[in-house]
Design a protein around this nucleic acid. Structure first.
Lengths: 203, 203
DNA sequence: GTCTATAACTAGATAGAC
DNA sequence: GTCTATCTAGTTATAGAC
């Protein structure tokens, strides 16, 4: 029912998009509905025709983001069998989605604290599910002997945490392209700081 | 002049400590000075005898944290020459400091957005300095050939980001000790998910 | 140094016209 | 579906007594 992230012609969609941008710029609590209304091209009261509360707007942004991540990841790794390739594609998807939807993912990653208990539990559940997909890959790879991870749960959290942080410093006009960032991070995740020296295999 | 983090007998110190805890729990914007006063054992107005504004309290927490990190890191790696050992000790210090000062570091890591321009610039400057120490180590190690990092600036950011995130999921009552977390993360940073299989050297 | 009282303001949310 | 107008509550910060 909801349109894709790219083209949201409806007023409701515009408000969500502007809300993500505003919340990212100032933080949820510091953002006012008056400012959101102004940016969305309506007056303050009109927001409440589309949403029951400010809180609901935040939840919609975060929930849609998590759904996109879960479905996108699943779709991306579905056909791959080899754990190394699955991890490779999973990380690439994660980074690209975060760089292509910076406002929404930033909000989803930082505003958990401002959700009510019920909403927060639902988002946390989806995050846990997303993370389990990655730890499952690391587990499988380690069991098969193509990876060597001591604690797969820890490592999967570490991988996601570092990739999630990319939009914080990435600059479109900077020297690095998205492709290069993806390549560097994947390289680092697989090989660590010691690098390829002395390894017998390559990916 | 300021006492150590552990024992802060002065009222001012108590307020700072409670503020870090409160800001971490609810976020800076959602925290009220009335609540902070209550937790600190004083009435609302009394806060202003010690601090000029709510903003100043936030800045003090973040600035003190950055100073501790900078000095602590410097002290920790001063005597080490080998880049591998320097990185090892640097990461261990970073993780331990974050786990031993969770309230303050969490605030320092998440509330940048709520600082005024001037204050924010100063904190960002110190963060950059801290990060440069790590990228410098990676650069040196790569130049010497004991490490193999493609982009040292990227890798240092990645390392810090994943370690900084540890307090988000770490649980004192959980199955993992601080020592184990440190060991796992250092292992992952050095060797990546592919692990030790096929490597000729060890650290 | 800490208190009480309050000023000055701002935000989320609602009601009802159009 | 959007507007104007407003209610209500809560916030930072200040003033002055003790």
């Amino acid at each position: 029912m909801e349109a894709k992230a790219e083209t949201r012609p409806s007023r409701k969609g515009i408000i969500l998009q502007e809300a993500a941008r505003l919340f990212r710029e100032k933080g949820y609590r510091a953002s006012t509905l008056r400012e959101l209304a102004r940016r969305s091209g309506v007056k303050g009261g009109s927001i409440y025709y589309h949403f029951a509360s400010k809180q609901e707007i935040l939840y919609r942004i975060m929930d849609e983001t998590m759904n996109n991540l879960l479905q996108g990841l699943e779709h991306e790794i579905r056909e791959e069998q080899d754990p190394v390739h699955r991890l490779n594609r999973g990380i690439e998807f994660h980074i690209r989605y975060h760089l292509e939807n910076q406002d929404e993912t930033h909000v989803a990653d930082t505003e958990l604290i401002n959700l009510g208990d019920d909403h927060r539990r639902r988002i946390v559940g989806k995050r846990a599910e997303y993370e389990r997909t990655f730890s499952g890959i690391l587990e499988e790879g380690t069991r098969e002997g193509v990876m060597g991870v001591g604690n797969t749960k820890l490592a999967s959290i570490a991988v996601l945490q570092m990739c999630t942080g990319i939009p914080y410093w990435f600059n479109e006009e900077g020297p690095l392209s998205v492709d290069e960032v993806v390549a560097q991070y994947i390289d680092f995740v697989f090989w660590g700081v010691l690098g390829r020296a002395g390894r017998r295999e390559s990916i």
